[in-house]
Write a protein that binds this DNA or RNA. Structure first.
Lengths: 246, 246
DNA sequence: ACCACTAAATGAATGGCATTCATTTAGTAG
DNA sequence: CTACTAAATGAATGCCATTCATTTAGTGGT
């Protein structure tokens, strides 16, 4: 009990506890005490948190704001999650189900990794504040995350990876993906040396030429500087790891 | 004025504004009003922040705690930095000077990159809360950071990299380094699937075999799981990027 | 020598935040 | 009927970054 309350359905995650704030104008407040029908559950909290994040960003994700969206007192949340960190874990695990692992099983190992890595990066580029949470998250209590690892592990195994290289390879790819997700959110002028440009001639020249290298792919899909760097690194990792297979 | 106050010396960064709290028992408080000799400066704030972090971690780095270490009222800090974020930038830039770029110029490009990447990862593994700050930090107001980029850019240029590939290559390496820094801090049992192990056979097997792969290097230098993954990824990137050179 | 200005400190707010606790009410097991 | 547990409210609590009015000290100009 206590943890199994909402894991039954798995996917839908948008079931109970909606509409009150939407249908009623949020007018008459609930009186104190347990309501006849439960207002909150983990699935509802998760989807409300996602809505809130997409509207207001992670700065706007406060327990108070979350409670307001759910038309509930902030303290009520603590009957369902132990802390704000818990809420972030719920969100994180939900996002993992959005990562595209469909290539494993169908496509070649190389193409499967490409599809997986790009979608993984894209998902978390929109949620970089979760990266410190994920990167250190024991997988135990994150079913979607575990499911992703299982699919990817099987893909590597089927591709002929020696057993003892599978986890390190995945970890290395993930590290690259997390770092690259930050890169997506960096400002365009991140490498503008400003007034110190004269004292850094090599760097300044390299930045200038990378910009002109970009012009070729202007208006293209995946043509931002962050995409160029990601593609370059990813292809190197795929080539390097591909050579490990027997 | 206003920004140039402490950039003069560059390296030492441990000069002014010390000892007051250490020598005097912190007994008699300073009376209000500007003191004859300035108590605070950026170098002092930076080194106090570093001390505080090493003693109490980043959770312990609060403006109040920092003020206490410096024997000053919290509001006094705001005469020297605009925000806590500013303090983090000072710390970040100082840490960049600890990254070992000495390989560029002496060693082969491969060895220089190895030295640089390992030390970069090691430094920030101890300071992961700064990663979200760095990854998105315009380089303009971070002199040490800029200096590092200059040295590395020159190393890549001298090694025969085409100009338009230098920045993307460095960015890709950095992304991998940042992600890998998190990995160092992950708990040992991060991949323990717990009760769900039966439903994830491929993943569970891979985790088991990666553990036994580790035993070989038990007690070794750079033998932790995070080190294995980092080496694997780094060597793949070096090999892949090395092929770009003309 | 005086005056205006700026720089650097104190100390007292301010508002936001996560979290806790006492209380109330509703279902449920014996 | 009676405990007990679950799920809500609402009123604290304590911490945190930041701001502001005030005080004092040095500095440049006349």
């Amino acid at each position: 009990m206590l943890e199994t309350t909402d894991e039954r359905a798995g996917m839908p995650a948008l079931s109970a506890a909606q509409g009150r704030a939407a249908t009623s104008g949020g007018a008459q407040k609930r009186r104190a005490g347990r309501p006849s029908a439960a207002v909150l559950d983990k699935a509802g909290i998760t989807s409300a948190a996602l809505k809130l994040v997409s509207r207001k960003g992670y700065d706007g994700l406060t327990m108070a704001a979350l409670a307001k969206v759910l038309d509930v007192a902030p303290s009520a949340l603590y009957n369902h999650v132990a802390s704000k960190h818990d809420v972030l874990l719920l969100v994180e695990d939900h996002l993992m189900s959005l990562v595209d692992v469909s290539g494993f099983g169908g496509s070649s190992w190389e193409d499967a990794v490409r599809t997986w890595a790009w979608s993984y990066r894209d998902v978390f580029a929109e949620h970089t504040p979760l990266i410190p949470v994920i990167a250190v998250l024991p997988v135990t209590d994150a079913p979607q995350t575990l499911a992703m690892y299982e699919t990817v592990s099987k893909g590597f195994s089927d591709a002929g990876f020696p057993q003892d290289r599978i986890v390190p390879s995945i970890v290395a790819l993930e590290s690259f993906i997390f770092g690259s997700a930050y890169d997506v959110t960096a400002p365009e002028d991140i490498f503008d040396a400003g007034s110190m440009a004269e004292s850094t001639p090599y760097f300044t020249a390299a930045v200038r030429h990378s910009a002109s290298g970009q012009e070729a792919s202007a208006g293209q899909e995946r043509g931002r500087p962050a995409d160029t760097a990601f593609r370059l690194g990813l292809e190197a990792l795929i080539a390097g790891f591909g050579a490990i297979r027997k």
